[in-house]
């Protein structure tokens, strides 16, 4: 295995932070979050996966699509500038997969979403293996592992005084060139795994459409959308125009897009105000079936990484594993 001393890694990260935005797990008042850091010393090393995913750095909660300037009868449209380079260090496998899942919709299915593409091209994914699975983690069900290096540019595994390092992409290889990397005998020790239940097959999820339990789950669901906002793959969005301060005689606006979720009550309204998903249960069903049936049908990958954040976030303890587990039992 290839290793890098912690001291050299920190020096390298300090150098990266000087050149571009460096995002890494950081201890905040309410937990550990991916945040811009100035120096390697600020990184929270001991944490489990951060409380929120890294989604916001590729697909921000709110972003400008367009600026509109009206001057009398004339209208000028201005597109947003391209993204600045950034590196995400300490990225967990579930969150790298989340980015990979968004890639499938925004990059790999035409047309390309240019704002997402600009951020993605300018973002380095520097992974850090989880040592074990957290209390609500179920990445192994989704075909991942706590130390899964796929979807990363570079993967690090913390071994105390040294870190094992593996480049996964040409970009990652170029990044590591010139670093004092040492070849050590032996293999990287795999992360510990925990036995977690199972989830239904895509077919069984699909067949659950008429299951009466969705209405029961709907009685609990508050349609608060927390599950979607903490989800590394939920990528639905709303678009609206907002007024900006304008000089006299002019009117300036921006067209924004912002995170939205299919569990929101008015999400699926049609033009006349009709709501095909007026019941909370039908919206919850749509969100989960999207993860395992609709999203794979449209874009390829399943839209769940097993990060378990929706389990932690739900104020009424609706649990994807419980809901899915019951359906799986019924299907057998």
């Amino acid at each position: 295995m290839k290793t890098l001393s912690r001291e050299n890694l920190n020096l390298w990260l300090d150098g990266l932070a000087a050149q571009q935005s460096l995002i890494a797990p950081h201890l905040e008042a309410q937990g550990v979050f991916y945040r811009p850091v100035q120096r390697a010393q600020e990184i929270a090393w001991e944490a489990d996966r951060p409380a929120l995913s890294a989604k916001e750095f590729l697909f921000p909660p709110s972003e400008r699509l367009l600026k509109v300037e009206k001057r009398g009868p004339d209208i000028r449209l201005e597109v947003s500038p391209s993204a600045a380079p950034q590196a995400i260090f300490g990225l967990r496998p579930c969150d790298a997969r989340g980015i990979r899942v968004m890639d499938a919709a925004f990059l790999e299915t035409p047309p390309i979403d240019s704002q997402y593409a600009s951020r993605r091209e300018n973002t380095l994914l520097l992974g850090l293996a989880c040592r074990s699975m957290g209390a609500s983690c179920f990445c192994t069900i989704m075909g991942l592992a706590p130390d899964d290096p796929r979807d990363m540019d570079v993967m690090f595994t913390d071994r105390g005084p040294t870190l094992a390092v593996q480049a996964l992409t040409p970009r990652g290889e170029a990044l590591l060139a010139g670093l004092p990397i040492v070849e050590e005998p032996g293999e990287v020790e795999p992360a510990s795994r925990r036995e977690v239940g199972g989830l239904p097959t895509a077919e069984a999820w699909k067949e659950s459409f008429g299951d009466a339990r969705w209405a029961k789950h709907g009685e609990r669901c508050l349609s608060c959308r927390l599950c979607a906002y903490v989800c590394p793959t939920c990528r639905c969005y709303d678009v609206r125009d907002e007024a900006l301060p304008s000089p006299p005689g002019e009117a300036h606006f921006e067209r924004l897009r912002a995170w939205d979720s299919c569990t929101r009550e008015g999400y699926r309204l049609t033009a006349g105000g009709h709501n095909p998903r007026a019941a909370a249960g039908s919206r919850l069903r749509n969100r989960l079936l999207c993860k395992f049936v609709y999203y794979p049908h449209q874009y390829g990958p399943a839209a769940c990484t097993g990060c378990g954040r929706c389990l932690d976030a739900c104020p009424v303890n609706l649990d994807l594993l419980e809901i899915g587990g019951a359906l799986q039992e019924a299907a057998q």
Partner: peptide
Amino acid sequence: EARMHCGLGKCGRCNMGELL
């Protein structure tokens, strides 16, 4: 129809089962 936002298969607003 739906009150969609992109018309390009991205915003997710208009799904009907697995169809957009």
